[in-house]
Design a protein around this nucleic acid. Structure first.
Lengths: 206, 206
DNA sequence: ATCCAAATACTCGGATCCGAGTGATTGGAG
DNA sequence: CTCCAATCACTCGGATCCGAGTATTTGGAT
């Protein structure tokens, strides 16, 4: 997909799987459960369908391998996977590359902001205010979780850096929103006519 | 895909198409050309394949409609699309919603940061430094474009807010990276043993 | 002892995405 | 006048994604 995608497995979920299998072998369902328990599903989009696809892809690539397929009781058998030496190496490579070279991403908010004009000054302010509220709430939650984890003493800070990053980005967004709302309300961001829809064009001159 | 995706057309590229057709009718190829010219391909992931799919989806949804299919010379005929009344209404709705309610997104960097530990202190610092360099360059470019556009007097600031937002987020990321690098180098972010791979485990005691 | 909700473990097929191809046409160099 | 590169305009099929469904089993309340 991205242009840097001659990589064998592209779905980031693969990274999570690799990360987990590096600790100990597991079968897909157990992987999903563990990831959810650790709140990794805030970082990776985790759906059952994709999980099984990704696991298969990792196996094809030789980064993990199937061990025995165990059957407990008469439930569907579970195929237990473990990471390979290659898998562990590629895991590190992958993380390294994702950090070194920024991927172009296309956040939905960015696309919407590109058309902010169409909401008109009041509409824009209203929508931005609502978003700000929601982002603030989300940030509160993020921060709460972070403090809780840290204070429990169970989780070293190193394993929480991604939470710190998230919070930071949320704060930046919040800051920007507040600023732009301020600009709009103070009339520092002029609204060309023609724009701003809902039918009633702002009726300029000529 | 996201859970708020009972929406008829989900690909944000549809927003761009709607935005363009709101100005004047056009055929897909022209739409692509126009979007690229305006640098919208930094905001929307634009590929020919998806474009034609999205246009078809928008038509199915009744947000745009095909007009005449014109043939200039003997080239493949071009199907010219124009927006419908419904389309214009939905466009506004869509922008409004994208702004009001933050979509959960899964930036690749975030997933990588979750496993920063595995690079070891020096590896992490090196990778983060390289990223910082690249992000700084990208930000420089973003900012340059912004100034250029503004000073040309052709484009009102309202149409550049998304560039300002982008730059802001890049700065936030940069800030966070610098801070974390500082923390690592000052030893303020301790590295539990066991972590940090490449085979040579940091050889603790016992 | 019985029943239902939750957990276990996955499969399947539709929807979407997207890059690589296809083939015609125009512009301009020589 | 001829030829090639660039542009025009799109199609196609493989890869991926993902939610809804399937089927079993355990645990606990009644």
């Amino acid at each position: 997909m991205g242009e840097n995608d001659r990589r064998k497995v592209s779905n980031p979920l693969g990274l999570a799987v690799l990360g987990l299998l590096a600790e100990s072998p597991a079968h897909p369902h157990a992987i999903a459960a563990a990831l959810r328990e650790r709140g990794m599903d805030r970082v990776f989009k985790l759906t059952t369908g994709s999980l099984y696809d990704v696991v298969r892809a990792l196996e094809r690539a030789g980064w993990i391998e199937a061990g025995e397929t165990v059957r407990v009781g008469a439930r569907p058998e579970r195929t237990v996977y473990r990471h390979t030496a290659l898998g562990r190496k590629e895991f590190v490579r992958w993380v390294d590359e994702l950090i070194r070279v920024p991927a172009e991403e296309y956040p939905k908010f960015l696309s919407a902001v590109s058309y902010l004009g169409i909401l008109g000054p009041e509409g824009a302010v209203a929508a931005l205010r609502e978003r700000a509220g929601r982002v603030r709430a989300a940030r509160e939650e993020t921060l709460g979780l972070h403090r809780e984890m840290l204070e429990s003493g169970e989780v070293p800070r190193l394993f929480l850096v991604e939470v710190e990053y998230s919070a930071r980005m949320q704060e930046a967004e919040l800051g920007w929103i507040e600023e732009i709302v301020g600009d709009i309300e103070a009339g520092r961001l002029s609204w060309p006519d023609q724009v701003a829809g809902t039918g009633r064009t702002v009726a300029g001159d000529q």
